[in-house]
């Protein structure tokens, strides 16, 4: 379907992707390769360690071994750090049942250092390269099938998020960028389960991201989407707006003319 103009959110999405890509490119340039544990420069690891000791160790332990306040980070990989810190979920603003995404506290460079440090502690998923999240040749239809099979139960078929137990939630995916989605799938942040590369291959992950990108366009052939929350908002709408209009007109019909 052709679109003559884009949603304003699309601009942000583009900006977000561009920023993310720049950051990743920067990281790639500064480290020489994708930040695999072994290939990372030792200065970056040292910087990361320093940042970690200052900002993270109070909860995760001085050797990232974990404590009662935070899980062990040994073996979680660079992708987990990039996701958690890059999306602003970490560091936590305060004790909460679930970390909230907010503007990141660290710079791209600092995040890369932190990721390099955590990656050096034990093998774990690496930050996906640009090529890994390039969805230009992805299969939209299969992506949709996989999304409805593996993702929609929590994130809703339109990717608008949903409630989990005891105040937890599956976030809205409308502003999620491809790298973030990829990282979430391979690292299983918070209560999200891990979708390994064997059960959902990297190609299939691309397909899923491609489908989410399609959802992010928020194309509404039939008009305003009321937030895509489903029938509840439709019901509220028919009572407040629909019946509201008709009752106002009824009052006009019943009122004496002058």
């Amino acid at each position: 379907m052709a679109i003559s103009r884009r949603h304003p959110a699309a601009l942000f999405a583009v900006l977000f992707v561009a920023l993310g890509t720049t950051g990743a490119a920067y990281a790639a340039v500064s480290t020489g390769t994708a930040p695999q544990a072994a290939a990372t420069s030792s200065t970056q690891v040292d910087e990361g360690k320093q940042l970690f000791l200052e900002g993270c160790s109070s909860c995760h332990g001085v050797a990232a071994q974990g404590s009662s306040d935070g899980p062990s980070l040994i073996g979680v990989g660079a992708a987990a750090v990039d996701f958690q810190v890059g999306s602003g979920r970490m560091p936590l603003a305060g004790p909460a049942i679930q970390a909230v995404d907010k503007p990141p506290v660290y710079t791209e460079e600092e995040i890369a250092s932190l990721a390099a440090y955590v990656a050096s502690l034990g093998a774990g998923p690496a930050i996906p390269s640009d090529e890994m999240v390039d969805t230009s040749n992805a299969d939209l239809v299969l992506g949709g099938e996989l999304f409805r099979t593996n993702c929609s139960q929590c994130h809703n078929v339109a990717g608008r998020g949903g409630a989990l137990s005891n105040g937890r939630w599956a976030p809205n995916l409308m502003a999620a960028d491809p790298k973030e989605i990829y990282e979430a799938m391979i690292t299983g942040p918070q209560n999200m389960p891990v979708f390994s590369d064997k059960t959902i291959t990297p190609e299939e992950k691309k397909d899923i991201i491609r489908y989410i990108e399609e959802l992010q366009k928020s194309e509404n052939p039939g008009g305003a989407d009321l937030g895509r929350f489903g029938p509840v908002t439709e019901g509220v709408f028919i009572f407040i707006v629909g019946l509201g209009i008709l009752i106002v007109i009824s009052v006009w019909i019943g009122a004496k003319a002058r």
Partner: peptide, 19 residues
């Protein structure tokens, strides 16, 4: 818009959506 069925996909008893 009301009930954008294309977003839900075809029914299969092994899929579900939040909300």
């Amino acid at each position: 818009a009301i009930n954008p069925i294309w977003l839900y996909g075809p029914y299969t008893p092994s899929q579900v959506t939040a909300g």
